[in-house]
Amino acid sequence: MLEISGLNSFYGKAHILSDLEFSIDRGEVVALLGRNGAGKTTTMKSIMQIVRPRTGSITFEGTQIAGLPSHKVAQKGIGYVPEERRIFSDLTILENLEVGRQAPRNDTPTWTTDALFEIFPNLYERRHNRGKAMSGGEQQMLTIARTLMGNPKLLLLDEPSEGIAPVIVEQMAKTILRLKREGLTVIISEQNLHFAGIVADRAVIIESGEKKFDGSFGELEKHPEIRDAYLSV
């Protein structure tokens, strides 16, 4: 579904991603693992074209998306949930959802506010409240719900377990598994290996913007040296 090859991204003069290469099939959940600063967020931003890759190719369902404006990427069916959440804090929850709304797509589930409120009941209770009055966990749910309003085929989740209470993390894991059952393809960036192991089928480990490992969690378990080299702090 998504194929990345030879991807090089920069922040100013700093080389963040070098010749990054990986792909994901329809219906798969892939965990993008690596330490802080390894390039996970930049990978996601590069897919969204928020960071413009300098070279390389990103194809989504066979069409090249490198070089497109961000909104075109989103309109093709890639949904992005940023790590910093970026709630529109002056807007109510319902209005936040409205910003994310896109027309239904053929081969992916269509989301309505009602369906989303069923998954995230907390949001329903506060639907007329402004985004600024929410807890971290609620904000995280709202960002995911807001992105789902665009009926994405591929969901990019940037560190969804970061900075939220353990009970919410559990709820988050359930939600991701449910989205997987609905047929969504998901790339999730994580530092929490345990959380990633629960939700994802495959792990891609990056370090200094280069791919170091690509395989199942079972394989990763057989190679503790890889884990020690690239994941432990």
């Binding site: 969204m48 928020i50 404006p69 961000s70 909104h71 990427v73 989103a74 309109q75 992005y80 940023p82 970026r86 529109f88 804090s89 002056d90 807007l91 209005e95 936040n96 409205e98 910003v99 994310g100 896109q102 807001r146 992105t147 665009g150």
Partner: peptide, 24 residues
């Protein structure tokens, strides 16, 4: 209106509005 909501969202964070599929 939806336009008004998008305008207010863009006032706060243009880039995010773009990433949600709105042609800024």
């Amino acid at each position: 209106t939806r336009i008004g909501i998008l305008v207010r969202a863009a006032t706060q964070d243009r880039e995010m509005v773009g990433a949600l599929g709105v042609n800024q």
